[in-house]
Design a protein around this nucleic acid. Sequence first.
DNA 1: CTATGGCACGGATT
DNA 2: AATCCGTGCCATAG
Length: 470
Amino acid sequence: MLIQSQSHTLRPLTTAHLAQTMTLLGLTVIELRQKIEGELASNPALELVESRRCPTCHRPLPGNSPCPLCSRPQRLSPDQPIVFLSPREDFHPYHHDISSEELPDDNFAPEIEDLPHYVLHQVAVELQPEDRPLAAHILTSLDEDGLLSVPLSEISIYHHVPLQRVEKVLRMIQHAEPVGVGSPTPQDALLVQLEVLSESRSIPPLAIQAIKQGMSLLSRHRYEELGNILGISSLQAKEISQFIINNLNPFPARTHWGEVHQKASSPLDTYHFPDLIISRLTNDEDSPLVVEIAMPLFGVLRVNPLFREALRQAPADKSDQWRSDLEKAELFVKCIQQRNNTIVRLAHRLAVLQRDFILEGDAYLMPITRARLSKELGVHESTISRAVSDKAVQLPNGKIVPMAMFFDRSLRIRTALKQIINQATTTLSDSDIAELLAKQGYPVARRTVAKYRAMEGILPAHLRQHFLPN
DNA sequence: CTATGGCACGGATT
DNA sequence: AATCCGTGCCATAG
């Protein structure tokens, strides 16, 4: 049998090994955690050793390696990302301490008043004095997403006023910034935002229906079924969905206040826990990237040495069972290592290739294919596919995006297209846009422009109207 | 007649 | 082998 040939690439030795590694590769952190917990529970030969922590930064360390950040020599090259496994005990997105200092917009008001006051000041002018307590009640009952957490009827009863009056006040609040705040459900928030948006620009006609009838399908990206309900094709459904994602936000408090045209980071997706967390080591322009690969458990998995020992004196009737447990455990540990190894190398390569995209944004995305990467890393194409699909990455700016975005061939062109339309003084037809794109080095067919436009939720030229921002 | 959406085909990707 | 994506052609709306 062939022994590993390449430098530090762990090679699968058996088909079972291969199969299991493949399966593991395809799993998200959260899925992997369940898988590992299952194995741990069913196989006594496996054990979980708790992670050590770095004495300096208190970060949990994978295995016996020194802390990849603190024990790093001073030789820092921007081209060399620091990639490491990061055992986690929590499953909330988190920011590296250093990068969290960097805030995206500078014109942010230094004295930030809290959301309830911010909204109250806006509605105060048109609010009847006697309705003030109602507004206050509503605004103090918001959850952290800006949604109303108590039923309206409760407020109505509490203040001994008719329900319509409460509704009237709520309507006022919902129309304040951030638009939709105070809505009882994400659905209501979207509807209000849509209504407000429709005053300044045209909107897809079926968007309202989509939100009203297909909310659950919408949030699960079930375009085909959504299309069926609305009596349109799944492509159209997708377009509408895209429009909603791009222009509306189901959780009003989660965006920054002020801007009307939110580029919300696809809010319907953000609850995913990222598998990769990318930040920058320092705020310098040439700082290396730090890539943490989320490990699902706070510890390191290994074969229990005591179990190995015990096997020697195993009672005859248990011997076979134990032996098989041990083998399974060894295989499992090896597969996990293999998975980690592949992901580390993949992440490293991606961080090198897509550095500009990670730091500067969509316009700098390199067009790369999974096939190319698989050659560079010396693995099968399907390996890359598995490793990428369904995974989420948190970028230094805090946005969580699907890992597949690193391989999106059209994203670059789509952002160029958006820029063209935003900067255009006249209303451009699709063919006009196609020409302009070609001049920028993106030769695309007119028909393709239409599709990209639709993907971005931008309406056709004759329905488009231009408004100056604010 | 022009601009755009639907459908389907072929090649690339997974 | 199945799926996705860009594109051409045609129908339709304005």
